[in-house]
Amino acid sequence: MILDKDNIYSDIEQIVSEIGTAKSAVIPILHAIQKKYNYLPEIALRRICDTTEITPASITGVSTFYTQFRHTPVGRHLIYMCNGTACHIKGSELVYDAFLRELRIKGNQDTDPEGLFTLQKVSCLGCCTIAPVVQIDDVTYGHVKTNSVSKILQDFISYQGKKVEQKTSEKKIY
């Protein structure tokens, strides 16, 4: 995705026209920006301050308070490692480490060198009975073990492939 200033400005205009310009619109607006870019580009946040009643202090304070919001770009796919209590006692920590290893994510980074996957801990996905749980984009995997991590990634990638395949085959039929 190319983050061109004009594009962002027109996206922001769209978002603001849908959600509104009130101070209280800040969280819905941030959700919308993140949905668009997968993170919150600073230029977009500054633009919001220019075109709404939302102040720089408010947008900075709010966007750094809530854990959903990210200020740096992420990989193509997001892996949410559930860190809920049930997952914890069933060894999610070890699974998390296995993902780090498998994706060769080093140090303080959260994204693999290819920029394909970003690994993020989340407090609970609410699927406690099938712990440990991992969600990649919109696909959820339950009962994950450290030694099934690479299979999961393979499965996810092939699922992605299938999605594309499905779309093209659908086109062929109709």
Binding site: E42, L45, R46, T55, P56, A57, S58, I59, T60, G61, T64, F65
Partner: peptide, 17 residues
């Protein structure tokens, strides 16, 4: 105007952006 960023033990006072 000033704002806090982050939360919990990591809350910090700063100038926006």
């Amino acid at each position: 105007s000033f704002t806090f960023i982050n939360r919990g033990f990591d809350v910090q006072l700063t100038v926006p952006f």
